[in-house]
Design a protein around this nucleic acid. Structure first.
Lengths: 358, 358
DNA sequence: CTCCTCCTGTTAATCGATTAACAGGGTGCA
DNA sequence: TGCACCCTGTTAATCGATTAACAGGAGGAG
């Protein structure tokens, strides 16, 4: 009376031990059919729906859930095709083992956060009842990653510098592929558009490069590798990887006194924004201006976007599997990428026909 | 040694009570600055990252998380714009209170599930460590909803028959709005395309109607209300609310011996698929065939789709707020909808020019 | 000098389960 | 008859914290 019904109250009402009630719900074979039936009947009568989830988690040490950290505004995250594909892969694998996915919010790192904001944000990370977590695109020294590591939770990362487990792609090689493709087409004036926590359109100098996401840095390095000495590469911030930010940045680039002949974007979202702006300015994409993306999201093919395909869905599946079955999976996997050439890239203007063999 | 470090081991190492350690982490003001510093130092030394999340949840009775049930394949869910908008609204509000969102998988009800499949699926629902849950588009007698109710967790629904709390729209009125619009345009041969757990393209008879989602039934009833006696309405299953299923259904409808002049779809996704198929068959949408959708998702405007706008994002925000602050929010809210007329609807063929005033 | 408060820290009950170890009775078999 | 083994069910320790109630000492007011 008064207090909620628990395993114990059911046991008392049925005149058995709490162990018996527990077995009635968890191990039917440990009890005679009649006793189990009686216990279940008493439970139903008392409105007892089964063992409490939290208590069970505490006792068994399993939460049946894994977490994923969101450092961007969650609202935006649900419009990012990369994130969606990753979530799709994760949940597909998780749901097979009846494991939930916990979306953990962390204050977006738009501007610098004060310490107290960070520690407040960390609260959600610390309080999350999970068996492991996925941190995609976060550096080792990100507060959330650190908090997770401190909790000594199994962690899967997508970062190159992964300590512990990771599923990654060779961003630098992918960058080279893009670079070579553009160079082959005769481009010597290239702009790289990276999503970064910097104002969209802003020119990224060497000092700023530290602020870039690790994958951006690597892709950038790859593009640099591929460019010959006589080529010029400028790096421009695309802001938060949204269409709007991409358009802003695209305008800046295109309006420059000496615009590039090719723009290599960090993501298909940004690339699509560039294509849109370019078309709006009367430029023929693939002729007057070449544009490349990254990821090969579903929208890339219809848009005719040259891009690097990475198996995002599989990445999510694999990350989930690594957390569910640590022993049956490797600690580190590098997934293949592939340059997909479509209509958005073509010979550099003024050099048409010069395309070198293969 | 051997065992993980806990609040207790820190207390012992520091030579204080466990209460002191707890206070050091949760209530700085209860301890002298020096003692707190000493405890924190000892904790750091021992690699103690703070109170265990699960134990804390058990003791305080708060999980700092709310759940949302997914009955469709999760992979698909992340491509459904309605779901994404709802999730966006939910997470936006939740992240402000540092609350996580738990995505709980439940076996998709494609075909009939066996009892054991259902009870296996229910496991995730029972084990979810949450303070409340959102069940969108599920009937009262859905096993997952029942399981949640049995756990006596606060529940927010979007269903008309909501027991407890709910955020809903007037689906029937929305249906009437669509019906009136089409009737005004002179349409008398109308097909309603509903997402339902039935084969796409299949004609839905009165018996099948019980299998429709509640919102579909209500929208259907609304359309029926609006149609005059001389009009004919056929109901067709659009399957699982995907483009692919929608295209299949669209083909069936358009290929019929006596095709309708207007197709009212249950969702913008289905409507867009219809438009695509119709265009592919050389039909001019808005002239030869009128098409309406539902939701007014982002893609609807560019596609020129006539549809009913519902404030999905706000719905999500409100649902979250209801769970976070039960006392400060009403039990039941009906959100407004609005018919948005665009180019996909026009006068019925053979009646052009007859459009009645307003 | 006495009484009252405030400040710090401790005691101990409690949240709601799981499960290894044990025990008693029935069966099967030699 | 004796012994081993299987079936059922119980005992009791444990998972890792939170927090109301209490207590001792310091300082202030009267």
């Amino acid at each position: 009376m008064g207090s909620r019904t628990t395993l114990r109250s059911v046991a008392e009402a049925a005149g058995v031990s709490t162990a018996a009630v527990s077995y009635a719900f968890n191990r039917p074979d440990r009890l005679s059919t009649q006793l189990r039936a009686r216990i279940l009947a008493v439970a139903r009568e008392l409105g007892y729906a089964g063992p409490d989830a939290t208590a069970r988690s505490l006792r068994t040490g399993r939460a049946n859930a894994i977490g994923v950290i969101f450092t961007t505004e969650l609202t935006y995250a649900f419009s990012d095709p990369y994130v969606l594909a990753l979530l799709g892969g994760l949940t597909e694998t998780l749901s097979r083992s009846r494991t939930s996915l916990v979306l953990i919010p962390f204050a977006p790192v738009v501007a610098g956060l004060t310490d107290s904001q960070v520690s407040e944000s960390l609260d959600a990370v610390r309080r999350a009842v999970i068996d492991g977590a996925v941190a995609d695109g976060l550096t080792d020294d990100h507060p959330a990653v650190r908090a997770l590591a401190d909790r000594s939770l199994p962690l899967v990362r997508s970062s190159e510098t992964a300590t512990g487990r990771g599923v990654l792609i060779d961003d630098r090689q992918a960058g080279r592929d893009i670079g070579h493709h553009l160079v082959e087409l005769g481009h010597r004036e290239v702009a790289m558009l990276v999503s970064a926590p910097l104002a969209p359109g802003r020119l990224v100098d060497r000092a700023d490069e530290a602020a870039l996401y690790p994958y951006s840095r690597n892709r950038l390095a790859g593009v640099r590798d591929a460019l010959p000495a006589d080529a010029r590469l400028r790096v421009v911030s695309g802001g938060g990887n949204t269409s709007a930010a991409g358009r802003t940045a695209a305008h800046t680039i295109i309006a420059a006194a000496d615009p590039p002949t090719a723009i290599a974007a960090d993501s298909d979202v940004l690339a699509a924004a560039v294509v849109e702006v370019a078309a709006g300015q009367g430029l023929r994409v693939g002729h007057d201006l070449s544009v490349t993306g990254f990821d090969d999201v579903p929208a890339a093919a219809p848009a005719g976007l040259t891009t690097v395909r990475q198996p995002i869905h599989e990445k999510g599946q694999l990350m989930a599997r690594m957390l569910l079955d640590p022993d049956g999976t490797p600690d580190r996997v590098i997934l293949p990428t592939e340059l997909v050439v479509r209509a958005s890239t073509g010979p550099a203007p003024g050099r048409r026909g010069e395309r070198s063999a293969t």
